[in-house]
Design a protein around this nucleic acid. Structure first.
Lengths: 142, 142
DNA sequence: TTGATTACTTTGTACTATACAACTACTTGT
DNA sequence: ACAAGTAGTTGTATAGTACAAAGTAATCAA
């Protein structure tokens, strides 16, 4: 295996290892909001008015899975579903005040964990790492 | 939010988004070996003779979860459990030939996907990215 | 304008991954 | 040799997920 493949292998392995721990890590950090709920809320915050279908595509999930997830979030009062005026097939999704608050609390806890974890990194490295991740995720449509 | 926090925020967000897609991505790439099974086999390959408890700690999973996972892998003939000679409470885990083969096949598929995805990165960037991931994961014990 | 087709979502069903608690089996330190 | 600790399994409950089928609304073609 050449040098390039070794780097790819490392990236593959480390990204995967991280992914594998993320759910449990989230559960420990903020037990009241699962990783799944957190990511959905977080996505809705930056893109209010998104459709269920868009979320499904983004997270590579089945539409039925998303339907149930947002159903649960709605029942918990964290989001609102509104039927779109122009197309009555569509439900547009919005964070409620409670949803925003729950999200903010979880985000603060997560931020603290990352600040701690990356505390000894200098700013240039953080920037480059962030840039690489954006580029990586952007590649297949983040 | 200062610059440093913005970089942290990006890292947090992008790592999380990636994690959220990894399971489904794996299911599409190699349906015959889930992300969970893949990571366990992969870990065993590099560290033959590992104990169930070690896997649980590494992946932040409950020992019962690991117990059932390795039970399933054993029933599928992908790994072997051997009682340790020096401590009869302990089961050490080994990849079987079949397990090695299944792992190799999935790894090849994954490698191809990463090669594709990162095809336009130059080698210096791949190296730095890999380095950052190692550093990041190493921080809390990978 | 209505019947077919398409688009978005929900529901029925089944399975996998997971946690927590209780238990069994073994080991170790005093 | 027994109390305390460690490794693993089993009972039970729940969340997350997929796939297939159905429901509902919009659009398009004749």
């Amino acid at each position: 295996m050449n040098h390039r493949d070794e780097a790819l292998e490392t990236i593959q392995r480390e990204m995967t290892a991280f992914a594998r721990r993320a759910r449990a890590a989230a559960a420990h950090l903020h037990p009241e909001l699962s990783l799944v709920s957190y990511t959905l809320l977080s996505h809705l915050e930056t893109r209010q008015g998104m459709r269920a279908t868009d979320l499904a595509a983004h997270y590579l999930l089945d539409k039925s899975t998303i339907s149930r997830q947002i159903g649960a979030l709605e029942r918990s009062g964290l989001i609102e579903r509104r039927t779109a005026e122009d197309d009555h097939r569509v439900h547009v999704l919005h964070l409620t005040a409670g949803g925003k608050q729950a999200l903010d609390e979880a985000t603060e806890v997560r931020r603290a964990a990352y600040r701690e974890r990356l505390g000894d990194w200098d700013e240039a490295d953080l920037d480059r790492f962030a840039g690489y991740l954006l580029r990586y995720n952007g590649a297949d449509g983040n």
